[in-house]
């Protein structure tokens, strides 16, 4: 049984209000596909039963969170798109090492980090190519809206299918241990990252200025107004020399003029305007 229009609209509104995520009309199949396992887990035969429960318990509870998590796209891979990480390694980090030499600090934020492939990629590059940073104060903050994916990210355990995605073989043997069919990120790398739950649409407490902000492939899910509000907060966390990296297909055209973009090959890096 597929979801009816009324239930679809209800879920569409709920996800937009709670997580700022837009689900376009016509995406009934997506809701059906993602929410069916949640419905079954909660003892319902179909998605309609689950939606009925959501309507009855309008206050935020566990079910609402499960629904939002299920509808948050978690498509990710190590070294996603490769070229931004080449620019990170060859341009951004060397430049910041020079500019931050006095303070010896490097602060990186991976927003919407999902199951951790992005922050672990960052950690692997830093460990692999910049041994001099061993004497620096390097922090990698990785945040996501969904608690469940953060738990997975924190665990650092990846399946064979997941390590197949984008991870170069040498990095796999160097930075992972194998246990059964799983590949586990080595402790020193895991310790480089602090994982924290953060809703990009809400107030960001305890955030400090960053040298590099990765906010890739997440703004596409928000409407223009939400994008602007997020980017305004992002801008406040940036210094003169800070870099902002968006997803390969994302742009700031018609969203904001607060940033200058610098192109390196296929990668656009953004710097705040002063």
């Amino acid at each position: 049984m597929s979801i009816n229009q009324q239930d679809f609209t209800y879920v569409q509104t709920l996800v937009r209000q709670k997580a700022g995520i837009i689900i376009d009309d016509g995406k009934e199949y997506l809701i059906e596909l993602r929410l069916k396992p949640v419905a079954i887990k909660n003892g319902y035969e179909n998605v309609s039963g689950l939606v009925q429960k959501l309507k009855e318990h309008s206050r935020h509870n566990g079910t609402h969170e499960q629904v939002i998590e299920a509808l948050t796209t978690n498509e990710t891979s190590f070294f996603r798109d490769l070229h931004p990480f080449e620019v990170f390694k060859n341009v951004i980090v060397p430049e910041l090492i020079e500019k931050n030499a006095a303070t010896r600090t490097l602060k990186i934020w991976s927003a919407a980090c999902s199951t951790g492939q992005e922050p672990y990629t960052i950690a692997m590059i830093l460990r692999d190519s910049f041994p001099q940073l061993a004497h620096w104060n390097v922090s990698i903050l990785a945040t996501d809206l969904a608690g469940k994916v953060l738990d997975k990210a924190r665990s650092g355990v990846f399946s064979q299918l997941e390590v197949n995605r984008g991870l170069p073989a040498l990095m796999m043997v160097k930075y992972f241990d194998k246990q059964g069919d799983s590949w586990i990120i080595k402790e020193p790398l895991r310790k480089m990252i602090v994982f924290r739950q953060l809703n990009l649409l809400e107030h960001w407490s305890g955030m400090h200025t960053m040298d590099i902000i990765f906010i890739r492939n997440v703004l596409i899910y928000f409407d223009v107004e939400a994008k602007r509000s997020i980017l305004k907060k992002v801008r406040e966390l940036m210094k003169n020399d800070s870099f902002l990296l968006l997803g390969s297909t994302e742009s700031l055209i018609n969203v904001t003029t607060d940033f200058n973009n610098v192109r390196h090959d296929k990668t656009f890096c953004f710097k705040r305007k002063f």
Partner: peptide, 23 residues
């Protein structure tokens, strides 16, 4: 070896490994 793909793999993952290796 230039790269390594573990079976079973998803078709899109093999494709992406090929692309990154060539890159």
């Amino acid at each position: 070896a230039s790269n390594y793909v573990i079976k079973p793999f998803k078709p899109e993952d093999l494709q992406s490994k090929i692309e990154t290796t060539l890159q």
